[in-house]
Design a protein around this nucleic acid. Sequence first.
DNA 1: GCCACTTTCCAGACGTTGTACCGAAAGGAT
DNA 2: ATCCTTTCGGTACAACGTCTGGAAAGTGGC
Lengths: 275, 275
Amino acid sequence: MGDEHHLDLLWGRGAATGRGRPARTTREQVVAAGLARADAAGLEDLSMRAVAADLGVGVMALYTHVESREGLVALMIDAAFAEITGDLYPHPGEPWRDAAARQARALWELYARHPWILHHGSRLPMGPHVLGMEDAFFAPFLDIGLAPAETANAAIALRSLVTGLARDSTSEQDQVRRTGVGLAEYWSSINAVFWERYFEEERYPSMTRLWYEGGFESEDVLAEEGILERAVEAYLDGIAVRVHSGGSGQDAGVARRQGAPSRAGGPPPSPGGPR
Amino acid sequence: MGDEHHLDLLWGRGAATGRGRPARTTREQVVAAGLARADAAGLEDLSMRAVAADLGVGVMALYTHVESREGLVALMIDAAFAEITGDLYPHPGEPWRDAAARQARALWELYARHPWILHHGSRLPMGPHVLGMEDAFFAPFLDIGLAPAETANAAIALRSLVTGLARDSTSEQDQVRRTGVGLAEYWSSINAVFWERYFEEERYPSMTRLWYEGGFESEDVLAEEGILERAVEAYLDGIAVRVHSGGSGQDAGVARRQGAPSRAGGPPPSPGGPR
DNA sequence: GCCACTTTCCAGACGTTGTACCGAAAGGAT
DNA sequence: ATCCTTTCGGTACAACGTCTGGAAAGTGGC
């Protein structure tokens, strides 16, 4: 297999020559097994030995399809994003706010299905479907009268808002799963022990006051989606204000780069690119 | 030391009795050594052996101060947040938007100093300074005419927005540090290899168009702070709209909970609390 | 001064992890 | 049938977190 670049695997380049001993498993099977295990038990239970055992295969057999554990996780992440990239671009005639909100929801639900993506340390891999997701997030803000840089920032910030909220929301479930203790006992132990033993109401006046005013009453899981909806709506409101009033960037930056680009290559996939 | 609860360590409860062999290091020293190492080399280089070697101490000596590696990281995170909790609450007379923006900046800069906090998998530990930060973030939104639940959501979403943006921005520097390759070569290799070998302009039309329009031109590091400023401003604009027009929640939920609370204890420190 | 008692320190060991090495196995091409 | 290419899997190794047991180093009581 050509070790030209580790990105080859993400972009499906390593074409089999047909010669040599045939592999007992496909790369798709390996990635699927990893996905299943991560969905069920989290990233910290994704050991190469465990994945190999799930497939009934020796450990080192995995390394014919992935170049490392981290490479496997990269493939898994890109495969996960393939779930939503099919219907992410704005539909014809769909208002930009509806499209952006729909994208935010899709990303949110993807993170709910695969929370390990959020607890994965490094950046998203530059795979085709991750890039597809990022590209789609730019689309709703393209022709609404924002300057190009504002357009880019608006989309990146929306993505980050969803990611941050999802991370906050899923991390506690993740912790519950990791420690093995059930959700009920976890919270009951927190409630029983933490508040009376450590929390000092006068030290944290804002939370205390909000508590007594009922600000933390939402107990159902769906209310957690409410916070996404509200935050996205508020943020898009802010973008809308920017469009109608101080926008003035409709044609300021259009076709500015028809000459010689200051950097060779193409667009960066993520916040800012080279800095 | 009483192993009543792992939270005792975070809240500084384990008081030394004065008897027995005195410890050669203090818990503060251990946490500081861990902080220094994580700041310099990231969380994945924070091994117990390395921290012990930095202190000139045997490995197991650390376990008299921390109960595990994860407990050490929790202490480190709480210690890091202590850097900003001193001046986080709104100043007297400070407009709520200024206070919220200032908090967002402070959190952003904290993450820039300690990016490993963002790449840490599980949720923030329930330490006194983490709680202090969370409490302060609620304060600006308290008396601006939002319903209690909206107040809580607004603060949580602002925190998540900053965290998400910071995570996106710092993860690539983190990746550079982890792989050992310098920033310049990293990006030059990305630029030289990626765009011409993998990227297909017709497959990612939004990014391609934004690129040609100059949407990704910000090359300086400070521009990265611009994205935070812009996103926070947009979000706070959305909150402001909510306050002045459709708010109507000024007194809807005040003092609703003076009777018997539906849950025993006190306010939850984080999004939603028990669900 | 001496002795119990308590706490900390450290060397070694154990189990688990990712993965390098290498000979054996298995199929296509000649 | 023989080569050639690729995959397979047992073994090995270094690094990791942390348990264990005994030695070390103090304090309090006599």
